[in-house]
Amino acid sequence: MIRNLYLIYGGVVLLGLSAAQYRGWSLATINEVKNVPRSVRDNPGSYRSIYSSFHHYTGGK
């Protein structure tokens, strides 16, 4: 019983892994934006990234 459950569980894990590899999933934090205007090509400064003005690391030890 437990073995069968484990076989199903393991199958699901490996299927998930296959999907992750094929579709190129990633653990990175990426923000998806729709309909970026074509004008950005000519005027890059008009695009406002949500990541701009983040607090940046200023340190070292």
């Binding site: 934006v33 309909n35 990234s49």
Partner: peptide, 24 residues
């Protein structure tokens, strides 16, 4: 600040990367 933008659809993948190197 990175944005990977699809020229045809306007779909963008927006992300920021900090690179830092300190030693001493």
């Amino acid at each position: 600040n990175y944005a990977l933008i699809n020229e045809e659809t306007g779909q963008a993948f927006d992300f920021g990367r900090e690179v830092s190197y300190y030693h001493g």
